[in-house]
Design a protein around this nucleic acid. Structure first.
Lengths: 143, 143
DNA sequence: CCTGTATTATACATACATGAACGACTCGGA
DNA sequence: TCCGAGTCGTTCATGTATGTATAATACAGG
């Protein structure tokens, strides 16, 4: 008589709790980045380019960000519109287009990284040391 | 887009690990629901309606799903297109529109809940009992 | 040299999320 | 009774994500 079997599974779900926690954390990171005119998507792309140290093809960027190429086409459009990145032709393979950080892009990336680190510090205060290491261990199981 | 390493030296950051894990978990849930023609967004809405046991105004649904009203307008459009939900006028307040589950919608919701429970069982095998309880405890800190 | 196959970026349709603006409606006072 | 403030759902613009299709290019083998 009880549909709570199928509608609600109250206690068992670490997976929904995980999604919920991720949403809160994501919102806070997003909020901090928004003040810089950035988003998680933009910051992630800028960071990949900064870490690579050289222009990356859009396919390579898609691969590093674990998303489809058509997404990167649009994201780079927006980053280019913001003046943070520019498209450069690849002389080795004329099918390819590489995304290159501009000076402004490099500076934004660093500002974004600082903003994220600051949010992270703030969040870590919510956890005791033991909870934090338990969390890190448990999350490893999901690759 | 998801992703993993974002900042300059990310290795120790539980928040990015959490986002990454959440993405993996979300993808698996999404994948299971897709086979039923559902998505997380749709299933969440159906479940709120099922749990309520009566038609809800779109504002109430937005509140329960923690999202803005305009999002619900679109989501209910899609659910209505799928025949899972119908809009009914609220006689008490003519500004309001209520979303009501159809028979098919009720059945879909139950099928979706079963699919999600199955994924969850599968995921829980990746964690030891102690890791799982540690994870649940840690996640509580994020509300 | 051609030709088939793979890969590149892009365009397009779609799904899901936000926020701003808007018309319709409710309701507490003046 | 009217009026202003607030709430309702919708529309629109935009950002982020997917998948499909397509044109240009690369490249291996015949």
């Amino acid at each position: 008589m009880n549909d709570s079997e199928t509608t609600t599974r109250p206690a068992a779900h670490f997976s929904l709790a995980l999604l919920h926690a991720a949403q809160n954390v994501g919102d806070r990171l997003e909020g901090a980045l928004n003040e810089l005119g950035l988003s998680m998507a933009k910051q992630s792309a800028l960071t990949q380019l900064a870490e690579a140290g050289e222009p990356l093809t859009l396919s390579e960027l898609a691969s590093r960000l674990s998303c489809v190429r058509s997404n990167i086409t649009q994201l780079v459009d927006r980053l280019e519109g913001d003046g943070l990145v520019r498209r450069v032709d690849d002389p080795q393979d004329r099918r390819s287009v590489r995304a290159e950080l501009t000076q402004v892009g490099m500076e934004k990336q660093r500002a974004g990284a600082r903003a994220m680190a600051s949010v992270q510090d703030e969040l870590s205060k919510l956890l005791s040391g033991t909870d934090m290491s338990a969390l890190e261990n448990a999350l490893e199981a999901f690759g």
